[in-house]
Write a protein that binds this DNA or RNA. Structure first.
Lengths: 235, 235
DNA sequence: GATAACTTGCACAACACTGTGCAAGTTATC
DNA sequence: GATAACTTGCACAGTGTTGTGCAAGTTATC
């Protein structure tokens, strides 16, 4: 027996599973509709609304945890890019972000919510810094377009990646291709130059590989059996 | 004296102004937040919530009228493009859409609302058809990228224009430049090719000129006191 | 098997919003 | 100046949401 004073049992296994299930459900529900109600999320997780409040203080706490999850993964992506050639770095970044499509979608949806603007901004800050750095070095090396100031071009790259990942298909294998080529295009390359670059670096568009992502925090969207409800109708 | 039977006075001038004021206010309010309350819109127009319901049956009717306004202007834009060179056509289209930035923003915001998805889709249909046509001809003439299927490329062009116009600045004069160059980039041109093209056609980036758009109907957000009768003189 | 942890269902207060009715004012138009 | 049009402010019912309290039931863990 453990100490009689702090004789707190550890959380039940099913409770932990339910908590993860709620996060997974929120992942799906909020990506589809950032104002999804607590009831809708709980129901999708196969729980009652009341039970959800046993795991999260309030709706905000739930959302904040999703943002934190995404932030961790995006930071891992940012850290994983270290190519000398800015064009290759951008291509690899786009491909890596496509791997995190589910998180990109959730974060983008949550970011629409005014209320969580600051939160998402700080969560994405490291990734943004990485893009600015890549763009800046790329311009100095004359590898990227120089008709647009670095901060603007960085923003453009970011928005392009977000747009393609969240608004186009996203499930088809061709989408990864599209995301990468779009980012290279917006960075200033002609489509033939982009094709040549990708031919020179076939590993960029190779299979998704193992997620070189963050420690802990399993991807909510990936735990399939935890999400019992609907089959994620990607339109 | 008019006929004593249908002795209906015509609407008072101030009432018409108030109606236009409401539309202008909705333009601003909804572009900022697509779920802005009726009260917020009425207040911004300097009227009471109750008065607004004297001009529009319900919130939906108001939104629908905004969509119709935007649709009319976008259709005018689509009709105004008739360049043989697809690259020039796309550049001109982007520039023209930038002129309608206020409407693009409102439509994009409303389109987020699930409820009005169909409405905005049909409102934009003619513009979409024009883009598909331009892209298709451009690919056949080998002027645009051919590594992406026409419908997808058209979508990409549309999303790029929307993204740049709604998410970047939008007020600075440089934004127009950015919108045009971004569309050309996503269409497959290198940034230098785009620059050369724009140098060859300086009129594209020339001053906004007179709105070659639909006659009558000033931009709601721009001329609150004007905008007389019906929403849009669709010829 | 005892116990604490967990879930459920219900009820409840609070809030924000929509759309309507009505009486009382104000104002453009005849 | 008479009149209809318009606006206002209030009250009201209805809806959908959030977050909490509590009693009763189920279940993993000790």
């Amino acid at each position: 027996m453990t100490s009689p004073i702090d004789a707190a049992r550890r959380p039940r296994r099913d409770a932990l599973e339910n908590r993860a299930g709620i996060l997974a459900a929120a992942h799906v529900a909020l990506a589809h509709d950032p104002r999804a109600s607590v009831d809708a999320i709980a129901r999708q997780a196969g729980l009652s609304r009341r039970a959800l409040y046993g795991h999260f203080d309030d709706r905000d706490a739930l959302v904040r945890e999703l943002v934190a999850q995404g932030a961790a993964r995006f930071n891992a992506v940012a850290r994983s890019i270290d190519d000398d050639d800015a064009r290759v770095a951008l291509a690899r970044l786009a491909a890596a972000l496509w791997n995190e499509a589910a998180h990109v979608q959730v974060l983008a949806a949550i970011a629409l919510d005014e209320a969580h603007l600051d939160e998402t901004a700080t969560a994405l800050a490291p990734l943004r810094r990485a893009v600015v750095r890549i763009v800046r070095e790329g311009q100095q090396a004359d590898a990227l377009r120089t008709d647009v100031a670095a901060p603007t071009l960085a923003r453009l790259v970011e928005e392009t990646a977000r747009t393609v990942i969240t608004r186009i298909d996203a499930s088809s294998p061709a989408a990864r291709d599209l995301a990468v080529r779009s980012v290279l295009s917006i960075a200033g390359l002609s489509w033939r130059e982009a094709a040549a670059l990708l031919a020179d670096h076939p590993e960029i568009l190779a299979a998704p590989t193992a997620p070189a992502a963050a420690e802990g925090a399993p991807t909510a969207a990936e735990a399939p059996e935890a999400a019992p409800g609907t089959p994620e109708a990607t339109e």
